[in-house]
């Protein structure tokens, strides 16, 4: 399942891409699984077609999805590719730094952030184990 919040500060395209990325990472979606068409997902979420199309394109650029004419969009890989390990590491660090900045700006102290991070880690790996990922 994919959930988005219309009143969130995070753009919808990013929420959709993150949701799919999370499903792939936790094994909810496996390599070769067919994703909904752009029209189907846009209709279900009640968002613009372009919003979903942009999210799919971003994931295709990461190598996670592939679109084959006549066969739709499928999960291409459960990893973003090992060739650019350094680049991946840098990207993850950037995102973590961004999340930490958000936490600091939201006046969360270090203990609260650590607690939140541990909770999310537990939830994430519990989901991944459940899906065999």
């Amino acid at each position: 399942m994919l959930t988005v919040k219309l009143d969130s500060d995070v753009p919808l395209t990013l929420q959709i891409a993150e949701g799919i990325r999370r499903q792939i990472a936790t094994g909810g979606l496996k390599t070769g699984d067919e994703l909904p068409t752009v029209r189907q997902l846009a209709a279900d979420l009640g968002v613009n077609l372009n919003t979903v199309a942009r999210a799919y394109r971003a994931l295709e650029a990461d190598g996670l999805l592939t679109t084959v004419r006549g066969r739709g969009t499928q999960v291409a890989s459960a990893t973003v590719g090992k060739a650019s390990l350094a680049a991946n590491r840098e990207r993850i660090e950037d995102r973590l730094r961004g999340a930490l900045s958000d936490a600091k700006l939201a006046e969360l102290d270090q203990t609260a952030v650590e607690k939140l991070f541990r909770k999310l880690m537990r939830e994430f790996w519990r989901g991944a184990t459940k899906n065999g990922g």
Binding site: M1, I20, D44, G72
Partner: peptide
């Protein structure tokens, strides 16, 4: 404001 969709085609 919260919308949920299935990821099954």
């Amino acid at each position: 404001n919260t919308r949920t969709a299935s990821l099954v085609n």
